[in-house]
C-alpha cells in the first residue's frame, strides 16, 4: 500500500519469507532466506515469519523454525499442489492485508519471479528482482535491496520509501543458510483458502519434476559448463560425470544448445539463465559477451581451453591451457581418489 504519511510505516512490522516446497521438500533457498530475514528482523527488532503454501505441507512447517522462523503461516490445500500463480498471489495479498508485514522476501526462482510481481502489483508495493544484498538503512529504517542489472555490469541499490510492505526476490545460493537450531521455539498458524482465492485459476494438467541435479543450475554450488568445443552430446556426458562427482550441475553455451547437444534448460547467458555459483568451470567456451553476462558474477571462474587467448581464458581466475578431453576425465578420476 502507498503510505499516507510517515507514521503509517509503524503499522507494518516483521519480515516474511515465502517458503518454496518442491516434491514435499523445503528448498535450500528458503533456508538461506530465513537466515537473511533473521538479520533484517534483528536490525528492526521484529520477528521472522515464514509463509508456507502447498498441499500436505503441514509437517514441513515445523522444519522452518530451526532455521529462524518465529511464526509459520501455513495454508495447506489440495488446490495448492501445483503452482497456480493466481491462487498463491491472492492468498498472499489477503494475508499481507491481514498481518501487515514490513518486508517480504522470496527466492528468485522461476516460481518466485512469477508469483511475487503479481503480489506486488495488487498490493501496490515496490519489488526488487534478483537481489544479492539486503540490509536496513540505519537512517530511514527502510529496506535496502541491492541487485545486479545488465548482466551484472552494474549494481543498483533500491528502496521503497512510501510503500509497505517492501518486497524483494533473492537469488538462490547467494545468502548463507544458517545452521539449524532445533532448540528454537516457534508458533504455527493455519489459514484457509477462500472461495474467492480459488476462482479463475489455471488448471495444472501435468508436473514433471526431475531429480537429476545436473539440470538445476539455480541450486548448484558448482557448474561444469561446455561450449562448441565439446564436439557433441558425448562431450557433455563427460562433463556430466565430473558434475556428478562434485555434486554440481552441467551448463552450456548457446552454441552447444543450438547444436542440439544438450537441452535449453542448461543454457547460461543472455537468452538462457544467469548463474552465480561458487565455482564455474568453463570447458572450451570462448566467452562471447552473451555468455559472460550470464556467469561473470560467479565467485571462482576456472577455464579450460587449448587456446589461452579467448575472452573466457583472459577473464578466468584460473586458466588451464590444455586438452579438455584429457583434463576433464583426469580431474574426475583424481577427485574419486581424494
Amino acid at each position: 500500500m502507498r503510505l499516507k504519511n510517515d507514521s503509517d510505516k509503524l503499522k507494518y512490522s516483521n519480515v516474511w519469507v515465502v517458503a518454496e516446497v518442491l516434491s514435499g521438500k523445503i528448498q535450500p533457498v528458503t533456508h538461506e532466506l530465513l537466515g537473511a530475514a533473521r538479520s533484517l528482523a534483528d536490525a528492526k527488532k521484529s520477528k521472522v515469519w515464514a509463509v508456507l503454501l502447498g498441499h500436505n505441507v503441514k509437517e514441513q512447517a515445523q522444519l522452518l523454525i530451526p532455521y529462524g522462523a518465529d511464526k509459520v503461516l501455513v495454508v495447506d490445500d489440495s488446490r495448492l499442489s501445483g503452482f497456480s500463480d493466481e491462487l498463491e498471489a491472492r492468498i498472499l495479498v489477503r494475508l499481507i492485508k491481514k498481518y501487515k508485514p514490513e518486508i517480504l522476501i522470496c527466492g528468485a526462482t522461476t516460481r518466485g519471479r512469477a508469483l511475487i510481481p503479481r503480489v506486488a502489483v495488487v498490493s501496490e508495493c515496490g519489488l526488487t528482482a534478483d537481489c544479492t544484498e539486503l540490509s536496513i538503512d540505519p537512517v530511514s529504517g527502510d529496506f535496502l535491496q541491492t541487485r545486479p542489472a545488465f548482466g551484472g555490469n552494474i549494481m543498483a541499490t533500491i528502496r521503497c520509501p512510501f510503500h509497505r510492505p517492501q518486497m524483494a526476490t533473492v537469488r538462490p545460493r547467494v545468502m548463507k543458510a544458517p545452521d539449524a537450531d532445533f532448540s528454537r521455539n516457534g508458533e504455527i498458524i493455519f489459514e484457509e483458502v477462500t472461495e474467492s482465492d480459488a476462482s479463475k485459476i489455471k488448471r495444472i494438467l501435468e508436473v514433471f519434476h526431475s531429480d537429476d541435479v545436473a539440470v538445476n543450475l539455480a541450486d548448484a554450488q558448482i557448474i561444469i559448463s561446455g561450449g562448441r568445443a565439446m564436439k557433441g552430446p558425448e562431450g557433455f556426458k563427460m562433463l556430466g560425470r565430473l558434475a556428478a562427482r562434485v555434486g554440481g550441475a552441467v551448463g552450456a553455451s548457446r552454441a552447444a544448445v543450438d547444436a542440439g547437444w544438450i537441452p535449453y534448460a542448461h543454457q547460461i547467458g543472455q537468452t538462457g539463465q544467469t548463474v552465480q555459483t561458487k565455482v564455474y568451470i568453463s570447458c572450451g567456451i570462448s566467452g562471447q559477451i552473451q555468455h559472460l553476462v550470464g556467469m561473470q558474477s560467479c565467485n571462482l571462474i576456472i577455464a579450460i581451453d587449448k587456446d589461452p587467448s579467448t575472452p573466457m581464458m583472459q577473464m578466468a581466475d584460473i586458466a588451464v591451457v590444455g586438452d579438455l578431453f584429457e583434463i576433464v576425465p583426469g580431474l574426475t578420476e583424481e577427485i574419486v581418489k581424494l
Binding site: R111, I204, E206, V207, S210
Partner: peptide, 9 residues
Amino acid sequence: MHEDGYDIC
C-alpha cells in the same frame, strides 16, 4: 519451464 523440470497448465 522450471529449474527442476516443467509443468503443463
